[in-house]
């Protein structure tokens, strides 16, 4: 252990991972890269359509409701959602760090917080979708006029529901993965294995979900 740290390491001489990363983690990275292209293609399709259209609804007029407060609060609800996801990302980092230090109880604690954060986010999204649906928005139906009051197209709602839906599906699978990780941790699977690398891979996925939200949030709610 000490020798590898001090002497010049021949990474490509064989007998080791030349990237110093475990195989599953490398593959998780490459999966996430491909997923980034999927989301990128979606968002670029949205951008292209927006550039090919004369008017577009103002997000501040569309997304301005907050549960219990009524309408007239642009950006407020989506700020809450963004904040929830960032915080859950932080608790995931702490779970990964606890795993590297082999502290089972801390891993369990932070994983539970992360799962709660994910469920909160999904609940927020469910509320927002239900609210928009009540206002008449859905795939193929757009009740919101353009920024300048002109007739809008259904592209706005189609892209919104497709892309936030695809992201929400990622959040859902992330929550399921984290629940599986929690069960495995409680069953001492990682203690017996001697490392918590699995938590790191689940963590990568969870951070990616947060990362995608940064882009979705900016593209749909801010600009």
């Amino acid at each position: 252990m000490a020798t590898t740290a001090t002497t010049k390491t021949k990474w490509w001489a064989g007998g080791r991972s030349p990237f110093n990363v475990e195989y599953g983690k490398v593959m998780m990275w490459y999966f996430l890269m491909s997923d980034a292209f999927t989301f990128g293609a979606f968002l670029i399709a949205y951008g292209t359509t927006r550039f090919a259209t004369n008017g577009w609804p103002d997000p501040n007029q569309v997304f301005n409701s907050f549960p219990g407060l009524g309408s007239g609060f642009p950006l407020l609800f989506v700020s809450l959602m963004t904040f929830i996801l960032i915080v859950s990302s932080v608790t995931m980092v702490l779970a990964v760090k606890a795993g590297q230090e082999m502290k089972k109880n801390e891993v369990v604690k932070y994983l539970i917080w992360t799962i709660i954060g994910g469920i909160c986010f999904l609940s927020c999204q469910a509320w927002e979708w239900a609210h928009l649906h009540h206002e008449g928005a859905w795939w193929g139906s757009n009740p919101f006029p353009n920024h300048d009051g002109t007739l809008s197209s259904t592209n706005f709602t189609n892209f919104f529901f497709t892309i936030t839906g695809f992201h929400g599906f990622h959040v859902l699978s992330g929550v399921v993965i984290n629940i599986v990780m929690l069960i495995m941790t409680l069953n001492d699977t990682f203690e017996k294995r001697g490392h918590y690398l699995m938590i790191e891979k689940a963590g990568l996925y969870w951070h990616f979900v947060d990362l995608v939200w940064v882009f979705v949030f900016t593209c749909f709610y801010l600009i």
Binding site: N64, G70, H134, E135, W138, P145
Partner: peptide, 22 residues
């Protein structure tokens, strides 16, 4: 486009969504 008043009380204006959707 006929601007729809976005009120908090949902449900009652549900049908207006389909009128001028392009």
């Amino acid at each position: 486009m006929e601007k729809k008043e976005v009120e908090h009380g949902h449900g009652k204006e549900h049908h207006t969504g389909e009128g001028h959707t392009g």
